[in-house]
Structure formats: structure tokens, C-alpha cells
């Protein structure tokens, strides 16, 4: 049971949702946008989160769409991880989504919730970062489209009340060779020690990580080491480890030493797999 009262709204349009957020906030109350709700419900139940109202985005058509249009894949923020993996439209994202929590929970978790929630791993961002996806944000002046890599800096940089409504990915990115690896401490269903997503485009590897720091990231420096010429894989990996080592997360899920060890062997395998494909 959630031990406090709150109001529930399910608007039909982005404007209605944004105005509602503004109105509730103006009354000195705390509204929260609501997607699948699993994080909000579990945290509220444990009294780690409090809100006066939830604004359910699942009644807004833009937030619920998943379709190809004009060579672009458009995924609404309220689309569930199961819908993404079952659709088969974006194999790398589908594979990543299918390794977050368990299958039944994936039927509720939304991509918007995974990106905007408080859990640090946000693994669905990795494919979006390396595939140069764009976020559609609804705010005071209507919709704007912005590169995920620009608006995500440790967290999604939204203004109060702004809504992540859709994510757009150019279709040519959907068919590049890719690698997705998730390594956990022991159980298959657990937070990652390390999750890596990588694609090979025009003979260049693009790679992003979760579990190495307290936020997911794509690093131009790491990509420049990986794609550097006249270096062995061992040299590339040693340079990456040297560059990254001081920033590696050290917590109950895994020590920084262990995560670094996992990074090293995961990179070895990832490079080997992607070097094989043209």
C-alpha cells in the first residue's frame, strides 16, 4: 500500500499535461509525470518518494506510438520495454530492453521512465546515444527536437514541467552490426556491473556504457582510443582503462577493481566481435 493520498490525472494531450503540471505546481504541490509507475509505486510505498499528484502520460497518443515514418523510427516515451523488444524494429534497443528487470516488469516499464527515473543505470540510453537518437521535448513553446547526447548530461536536462514525448532514430542506424553485453554480479536479473552497447558504422565503433559511473555515458575519448589506427587491441584497452580507472563506480554491486576487470574482458570480447564484421 502507498501510505499517503495523491490525485490521479490522465490527460489526452501534451498541452493538457504540461498545463496541468504548471497548475498543480502553482498551487505549491508536487506533481509527477507517470509512465509505467513501477519506480514511483515502489519508492512511494517505502516512503522514499512523495507526490501530491501523478499525471499519467499513457493517454497521450504521441507518447504511446511506436512506428516507422519517413525512414525514422519514432518511439513514444510511454511505450513499454516489452513493446520495444517484441516489435523487433530496433534490435539493439530491443535486446537492451529485454535485459532490464524481468520480463513481466518489462511489460510495465516505459522507455521514458527508464531514462527519466532515479535509478542510475538507464540502460536504454546506451543504444540511443550511439545511434545519435533525438528526443522530442514538449514545453512552454511547444515541441522541440534535440540530440539525446546534448540533452543528457548525467541526467536528462529538462526544464520544470517539460515532457519527453518521443524518441526519434534514423532508420539507417537500426541495421548496423552491434554488440550488447550486460554483466551482473551473480543473478541474471540484477543491476549491471557493466552494460556495454556498441555499433560499427563506416568502420568506426561507437560505444556507450552503464554501470561504470553513476550515470550512463558515451565517451569521445574512449571511442578515439578504440578507433585509433596502428594499435593492438591490448594497447587500446590499456589506454581506456588508464583513462577511465579513477572514475569507476565502487559500491555494493561491485568494487571499482572488479568493475575494471569486467570492463577489460568485456572490451576484449566486444572489439573481437565487431572487428569480425565489415
Amino acid at each position: 500500500m502507498i501510505p499517503f493520498k495523491f490525485e490521479y490525472y490522465k490527460p489526452d494531450t501534451l498541452k493538457e499535461a504540461f498545463d496541468l503540471y504548471d497548475y498543480i505546481k502553482g498551487q505549491g504541490k508536487t506533481p509527477l509525470y507517470y509512465g509505467g509507475g513501477s519506480e514511483i509505486i515502489t519508492m512511494s510505498r517505502a516512503n522514499n518518494l512523495h507526490m501530491d499528484a501523478v499525471i499519467d502520460l499513457k493517454g497521450i497518443p504521441e507518447c504511446c506510438r511506436i512506428e516507422m515514418l519517413d525512414n525514422k523510427l519514432i518511439i513514444g516515451s510511454a511505450v513499454t520495454l516489452s513493446q520495444i523488444s517484441e516489435s523487433g524494429l530496433f534490435p539493439l534497443l530491443g535486446q537492451t530492453a529485454a535485459r532490464i528487470a524481468d520480463h513481466t516488469v518489462q511489460c510495465r516499464l516505459t522507455i521514458g521512465g527508464n531514462i527519466c527515473g532515479t535509478i542510475i543505470y538507464k540502460e536504454t540510453l546506451l543504444p540511443l546515444m550511439i545511434c545519435e537518437s533525438r528526443a522530442v521535448i514538449y514545453g512552454k513553446n511547444g515541441k522541440r527536437e534535440v540530440q539525446i547526447n546534448q540533452i543528457f548530461d548525467k541526467k536528462l536536462r529538462l526544464m520544470p514541467g517539460e515532457i519527453l514525448s518521443e524518441i526519434i532514430t534514423d532508420s539507417n542506424y537500426l541495421s548496423f552490426p552491434y554488440v550488447h553485453v550486460k554483466k551482473t554480479k551473480s543473478d541474471k536479473i540484477a543491476y549491471p556491473l557493466l552494460t556495454v552497447a556498441a555499433i560499427k558504422k563506416d568502420n568506426n565503433i561507437k560505444i556507450a556504457f552503464s554501470g561504470l559511473e553513476n550515470h550512463p555515458f558515451r565517451s569521445r575519448e574512449i571511442e578515439s582510443f578504440i578507433n585509433g589506427e596502428n594499435m593492438s587491441d591490448d594497447d587500446k584497452i590499456n589506454r581506456i582503462i588508464g583513462f577511465q580507472q579513477s572514475k569507476v563506480l565502487d559500491d555494493a554491486e561491485g568494487s571499482s577493481c572488479y568493475r575494471t576487470f569486467v570492463l577489460k574482458n568485456t572490451l576484449e570480447n566486444t572489439l573481437k566481435m565487431l572487428e569480425k564484421v565489415k
Partner: peptide
């Protein structure tokens, strides 16, 4: 949302009813 003992089916999808609001 961990154990699955409360699982029901909503619109064909299996969901854990402890992490769903009734009003939804």
C-alpha cells in the same frame, strides 16, 4: 514487483498487480 505472486494479465500482457494503480 519482485516475486510475481500477484501476476495478472492486462490486455494480454502479464503484469505484477502490486505495481499497478487501480485507477490506471
Amino acid at each position: 514487483g519482485d516475486c510475481g505472486a500477484c501476476t495478472v494479465i492486462v490486455d494480454g500482457w502479464s503484469v505484477k498487480s502490486c505495481i499497478v494503480l487501480t485507477v490506471e
